[in-house]
């Protein structure tokens, strides 16, 4: 089998790209001509109301859905160019909901993240990668516990650790913070920042606009299957745009200390 271990791409390289992607699911158009590029060294937040197509865009970028029209690229090649294992060496995905059919332990599940490297020289790093991922996700203390005995937030951190252990340069996080408390929400986004600082690319779907504003280098706003804004959070997350997209009056102020946008719905 042809297995090329990917070289790490330098900072600022486009690692993944959607070009004019359209997709219908069950006869309903979900994505409508979406173009988006993901660059290394950058945290990209996908925001937008329910049903805007954020998670679907993530699943198209990660190869779960082939688009009806348009193309998806990974590491400079069209996605179908890579075998499933080669794709897995290049991008890791953390899904919203994690389930498991048999009672595997937390350590077993995180170690599964290493499977793309099975039989390659990088398998030597397995032990270190798993230990580091457990620590980063703050779950070392329940490494021996069975997944089904964990709370929702703990499960989310196990899924995150599994994605981290994969050590791909591109990380997709689909609502990683939905089940987390304030401390762990901040920790996950902080972690995304650190990964980006080490030249990884991180794409994160979030509902909390303040998390996006506080941590993302770039924000893309989706509405009705289209990207309506894409750029620096300070330019993109404006009261006018958010009020229109969310169909609810929204107020935005610059934070007195950092200048980052602070977003509140009008109550």
């Amino acid at each position: 089998m042809r297995r090329q271990i990917p070289a790490r791409l330098p900072i600022g390289t486009t690692i993944a790209e959607a070009r004019e992607v359209s997709l219908e699911l069950g006869g309903t158009p979900i994505l409508d001509g979406v173009s988006l590029s993901v660059r290394t060294g950058e945290v990209l937040a996908l925001v937008g109301p329910n049903g805007a197509g954020k998670s679907t865009l993530l699943s198209v970028l990660s190869g779960d859905h082939a688009p009806d029209r348009g193309e998806v690229f990974l590491g400079g090649e069209p996605l179908p160019h890579w075998s499933p294992v080669e794709t897995a060496m290049r991008r890791a995905v953390m899904l919203q909901q994690a389930t498991i059919s048999f009672p595997f332990s937390v350590a077993d599940i995180v170690a599964m993240g290493r499977s793309p490297w099975y039989g390659t020289p990088r398998a030597e790093d397995d032990e270190n990668a798993v230990r580091a991922a457990l620590e980063t996700a703050d779950i070392t203390e329940f490494r021996e516990r069975v997944f089904s005995s964990l709370s929702g937030g703990e499960r989310a951190r196990v899924s995150l650790a599994r994605a981290l252990a994969q050590e791909a340069q591109l990380l997709f996080l689909d609502e990683p913070t939905a089940a987390l408390d304030l401390h762990h929400q901040e920790a996950v986004l902080q972690l995304a920042r650190e990964s980006a600082a080490a030249d990884d690319a991180v794409v994160v779907v979030v509902h909390d606009l303040n998390l996006a504003a506080g941590y993302a280098d770039r924000v893309a706003v989706l509405s009705h299957g289209k990207i309506v804004a894409d750029g620096n959070p300070r330019n993109v997350l404006t009261a006018e745009l958010l009020t229109e997209v969310y169909r609810h009056p929204v107020e935005v102020w610059p934070h007195p200390a950092t200048g980052a946008p602070v977003i509140l719905p009008r109550r």
Partner: peptide, 20 residues
Amino acid sequence: ARRLDLLSLGDRSAGHLGVD
């Protein structure tokens, strides 16, 4: 055997880890 372990994470997650 190894791939069946991954399949217990569900089809999507198994796919993300390189399982066809």
